[in-house]
Nucleic acid binder design. Structure first.
Lengths: 251, 251
DNA sequence: CATTTGATGTTATTTTTCTAACAAAAACCT
DNA sequence: AGGTTTTTGTTAGAAAAATAACATCAAATG
């Protein structure tokens, strides 16, 4: 990609940073180039901006991904996540201090929060923070550090210490693999410390994982199933409520 | 308006209640009627839903609100900021560790960075972090804490300690007010600590402020002009290079 | 039962947006 | 300078969407 092209994209991205749309014609006028050039910039770019019916809009916000493109498969997972999150949301009470884990699983949870909901939410994920930053009722605490693009999270050596200073009420944890015997795992090792710290200091621990994670093992173990008080999952997960600790909720 | 029509609209409104888009064709299939009927429903409705390029969206969705104001006034300032940032960018060398301050002034700087640029960038601003998160060559460090929507920044009591542990090479600082005699100020008190810490520990300090800030005093002072090595500003600022410390660059 | 009325579907037309191809201009290199 | 590549603009054609007009259907009414 071109340097000038990148600068134009940057400018447009900035213009649209807080949402809104821009007619393609406006964008072209703004940058002093033809509409065709803007089109080319967009298709060469990283997909942060997209064109929908002649209107330039942000595409990087999962909140605005198409909901019901029933044709594709991604969306069925999205719908599953939506269902799980609706159940998870019922565990949230006003005044809670929540920990919200990384990934896309919990995005419907934070995106769906009521504007006026009075909560404190702690996270180390950039996408989660972005969604929460728009809610006036939420006090957002982001655990900073070095950014890891692979999981859109921040990692730092004192994240555990900082987390333990916060009075976390409920921890919503995600996983890439959930195995009844072997335990709960994720892809990236830098996610382990925050997850474990959140599990350690939260009063109530909730695991949210859709069917596609069931029976899977990923590189980084971070907990066993009975570290959790509640597990919210889909009907095909094969997990069942036993006498033991975790209460399995099927959504 | 028709009763069935109203019911369809209600159903679609519900489907889009949490944002997202719906293809007109999907909507038609969902309601079991033709696309034309959906179109008629929409134009007869209260305007809560709207059609944009074949996609059905909520009219009050902030993402799809047209940005009317861009063409007008913001534009000239944006262009000025673009100019300042082009000058500022010339001070960046590969391998640098930068501090980038909050606000919109420096957005063109980070948005315009080359994809391959090898840098470490430290910031405490969410918008800056978002722009940088897309650049593969940039190691992004976000100083976390409690989110302040007014400035899109994070604040925490140990931000100063954490900053001083980082080897900041060049600090790009912004201001809401620059006064030759009185000093440099910003709107929010929670910005003061990070700014001062960055100024304290950086090797080179650059102030970037467009003309509209010149001669202005804002609530929170955080530095004097000669705390900076370089000041990048516009032609109308009235600032001039004197014998003293700050080198004034007019862009 | 025929007729009317309103809602819906279908088709055709216009407008707009998208894509591809080529031409012009600018930047780049030797 | 001369030639090459890259970037941008223009044009033309294809695709999609918006609009309008007309046809069809179903319920309601006398």
């Amino acid at each position: 990609m071109n340097e000038r092209s990148a600068r134009r994209l940057g400018r447009l991205t900035e213009a649209l940073a807080r949402g809104g749309t821009l007619r393609l014609s406006e964008a072209a006028r703004l940058c002093g180039v033809s509409e065709m050039t803007i089109r080319r910039d967009l298709s060469a770019g990283d997909g942060g901006l997209t064109l929908i019916g002649g209107h330039l809009v942000r595409a990087d916000d999962p909140r605005y991904a198409p909901l019901y493109d029933l044709a594709t498969q991604q969306d069925r997972q999205a719908e599953a996540k939506q269902r799980l999150c609706e159940v998870a949301a019922r565990h949230i009470e006003d005044g809670d201090t929540l920990f919200v884990d990384c990934g896309t699983t919990l995005m419907p949870l934070v995106s769906g929060l009521d504007q006026e909901r009075s909560l404190t939410v702690v996270t180390y994920a950039l996408n989660v923070a972005n969604a929460l930053s728009r809610l006036p009722g939420v006090r957002l605490v982001l655990l900073g550090g070095v950014y890891h693009p692979s999981s859109q999270t921040f990692a730092s050596d004192d994240i555990v210490a900082r987390l333990s200073r916060l009075g976390i009420n409920k921890a919503f944890i995600t996983a890439a693999g959930v195995h009844a015997k072997k335990g709960v795992s994720c892809f990236h090792f830098h996610e382990v410390a925050p997850k474990q710290a959140a599990i350690a200091c939260a009063t109530q621990r909730l695991l949210v994982a859709d069917d596609s994670k069931a029976g899977i093992i990923r590189p980084a173990y971070f907990a066993t199933l009975d570290d959790f008080d509640v597990v919210i999952t889909g009907p095909e997960s094969g997990l069942e409520t036993t006498a033991g600790r975790p209460q399995i909720i099927v959504a």
